[in-house]
Nucleic acid binder design. Structure first.
Length: 305
DNA sequence: GCCCAGGCACTCA
DNA sequence: TGAGTGCCTGGG
């Protein structure tokens, strides 16, 4: 990877395995806005970043060299060799090979633990535009103003302390719905230190999952999302409805398969890279609605393979 | 007006 | 341990 700093912007001249839209829109984060084709605003780490493709380069606007090296390099996981992971997964599995071919520019972001936890609690039984709206509402109400961009004010996601003032009623006003009480429980457990990144970072994934699941509203899927997207646990395999569908479709003859069987199959096949395989498969399943409509899907997929 | 969505808690057998 | 059901909300 090669980058330079010119005209006040950071320019990524040489890079691989990175397409802005594929990385941001594959369902792992909720704080971004599309401005145009490969042109996005990202709100993370108390910063507002304008990231866009210009020719063959990727330009990071509204940032500094220091922030790029201290924040965005890690946030976008640029230190990891994705070609190696993709080659490994593709060599072992034909389905993942096709999924990787479809979206080779997905990278798994390293997001803030608390923001990720609350965001995925909100995600249950919800659609992406609504999740984005609720997270934005909470940030405006409890977070801090960062800056204006294109005549719009942007706010940071609140810290544990900042969100500890929130009442269930106030959170309901942010359109969290029945999840408000789950957020309160998560904030209480984070405030007391019962749950923290520091406490979870060095224990085995299975134990960390159990700990996270002591929070009300956190089940296996939400726990795995938090571990994969904010704790660097690439062996976590979040199994939502789409992953269940794609796994059932390709590996279990289209039969409805229990989550436990899917988990075991994923760990056997992909091991410590299960999380990366999940992200390629999830994106593939969602784009082609695999398993959602049997006849249509088979036609679409066969034309791809 | 009805159905459903990127799950989970709760109840009951 | 597994099946069944309800849940805020808003878009189709």
């Amino acid at each position: 990877m090669k980058y330079s700093f010119c005209d006040g912007n950071l320019v990524l001249n040489e890079y691989d395995s990175f397409v802005i839209s594929q990385t941001l829109e594959c369902g792992q984060c909720f704080r971004f806005e599309k401005i145009g084709d490969e042109d996005y605003i990202v709100i993370a780490k108390n910063k507002v970043l304008h990231i866009l493709k210009k020719g063959s380069s990727i330009v990071f606007e509204n940032t500094t060299k220091e922030d790029f090296e201290n924040i965005w390099l890690n946030y976008f996981d640029f230190k990891r060799d994705y070609n190696k992971i993709k080659e490994l997964l593709s060599s072992e599995d034909e389905t993942v090979k096709n999924a990787v071919k479809y979206a080779p520019g997905i990278r798994i972001l390293n997001q803030d633990f608390f923001e990720c936890l609350i965001s995925f609690i909100i995600s249950q039984n919800n659609r992406i535009p609504m999740i984005k709206k609720v997270v934005s509402n909470i940030s405006q109400k409890y977070g801090n103003f960062i800056c204006d961009f294109n005549n719009e004010g942007y706010y940071s996601f609140p810290s544990v302390e900042e969100l500890s003032d929130a009442t269930e009623e106030e959170l309901m006003e942010c359109k969290t719905g029945f999840r408000a009480k789950y957020i309160i429980d998560a904030v209480e457990k984070c405030m007391s230190g019962e749950i923290s990144f520091e406490k979870l970072k060095d224990i085995p994934t299975d134990e960390a999952r159990k700990e996270l699941m002591t929070i009300k509203g956190v089940g296996p899927k939400v726990a795995d999302c938090v571990m994969l997207f904010s704790m660097g646990r690439s062996d976590a395999f979040p199994t939502d409805v789409w992953v269940k569908r794609v796994m059932s479709y390709f590996y279990f003859g289209g039969n409805d398969t229990p989550i436990k069987t899917i988990h075991k199959s994923a760990y056997d096949k992909f091991g410590q890279y299960a999380g990366f395989a999940q992200q390629y498969l999830f994106n593939y399943a969602r784009e082609f609605k695999i398993g959602a409509s049997e006849k249509k899907t088979k036609k679409q997929v066969s034309s791809l393979c």
